[in-house]
Simulated assay, not measured.
Amino acid sequence: MSIRKNFDLSAYLVVGPENTKGRPVETIIKDAIESGFTCVQIRSKVASAIELIQLTREASEVIAQAGKSDEVALLVNDRLDVILAARKQGIKVDGIHVGQSDIPVEVCREYLGEDSIVGLSARTHELLEYIKTVDVSQIDYFGAGPLHETKTKPDCGLDLDGKIVIRSLDEISELAQLSPIPLVIGGGVKLADIPPLAETGVEGFFVVSAVTEADDPKLEATNLVKTWNLHKLSQNKTNKISPFI
C-alpha cells in the first residue's frame, strides 16, 4: 500500500547540508527518525542535482535500515527532476513539497503519479480565504507559518508588501479548523512552542535548525516528539465527550 494513504505529518524534519553545522545529513536524519520523526524533507538551495540525488539516496537508505520505509515519508523540496532521477536509480522517494512559485502541483501529480505525496506551502497573502477556497484535489497537505521569523528560510511568511507575516496561535487554530486537508506548521519552532502548537488542532510541526543545528540532535528530536505526543494525547482526552454528560 502507498504511504500516501497513511502518512504521518506529526514530526516533520526539513534538512539540507547548509543546516547541519558541517555534520553529515544522513546522521541528522538517523537521529531524527530513531527519535520518532515521521517525515523527512530534503531541501537545499546550494546542493547540485547530483548532490541532492545522493542526499536522497542516503536518506532513503537510513529510513530503510531503521525498518521504517512504510512509516516515514521521504520528500524532496521543489526538485521534481531530482525525484524522477532518484526513482530512475531505484531510490524510494515518497513525494515532493512545493511552494507557490515552484512547479505547479498538477504537474507534480502528473509526473509522480497517484501514489506520491504532494505538499504545498500555503499562500501567505489572504491565507484564511485561500485555505477555504483553494482546490485541494491534487494536494495532500499544507505547510504554513512562520510561527517565528527564521534564518533558515528568511522569506518564509513573506507577504505581497515584502513584510514577514508571523502566524499567531489563534490564527493557526482557525487555519486548522478551516483547512480541508492536513496542516503542518513551522518557522522557527522550538521545544517551548510544542505544547501550545499541539493544542491548535494542526496535524504536526516542522523544524529545521531546532534539530539540525542542535548540539545533540537526537536528544532535541526526542524531546520534541515526546512533548508533541504528550500534549496531543492530553488534548484528545480533553476533547472526548463523555456519554454520561
Rank of each mutant, 00 (worst) to 15 (best):
Q177H: 10
E126A: 13
G143D: 09
T222F: 05
K226T: 13
P243W: 07
K237M: 15
G188C: 04
D102C: 09
N236W: 00
R87Y: 05
V208E: 07
V211F: 00
G99I: 14
D159F: 02
L13F: 03
I28M: 02
V14R: 02
V225A: 11
P104R: 09
F37C: 08
S44P: 06
K190G: 10
A66L: 02
L233T: 14
S101E: 15
L52N: 14
A122K: 07
V15G: 09
R23W: 03
S209E: 10
P182A: 09
E171C: 05
V107P: 00
I83P: 06
V25M: 11
S2A: 15
D102M: 10
L183S: 08
I181S: 06
D94T: 04
E18S: 13
S69C: 12
S48L: 12
R43P: 01
A73K: 02
I241T: 13
K151A: 10
T27M: 07
A85F: 00
A221I: 00
K21I: 01
L230E: 14
A59S: 14
I42V: 15
V207Q: 04
P243S: 13
L224S: 07
V118R: 06
I164D: 10
L191K: 02
G22D: 03
S173W: 01
G201F: 07
K190I: 09
Q54V: 13
L197H: 07
L120V: 13
T133L: 15
K132Q: 15
R79L: 09
I194W: 01
M1A: 12
G16Q: 10
S44A: 11
G36W: 06
I131H: 03
L158R: 13
I194K: 03
Q54F: 11
D94H: 15
Q54M: 12
S2V: 10
L128E: 15
G157L: 07
I29M: 01
L169Y: 14
P146F: 08
S234K: 12
V184N: 03
G187L: 08
V93L: 01
A47E: 09
A66H: 03
A210H: 08
I181Q: 04
D94I: 08
V107H: 04
D115V: 04
P243H: 13
N236P: 00
S48T: 15
F37W: 03
F7P: 07
V211Y: 00
D161A: 12
S173G: 12
E149T: 14
S137G: 10
C39D: 02
I194D: 03
L191A: 04
D155E: 12
K232V: 15
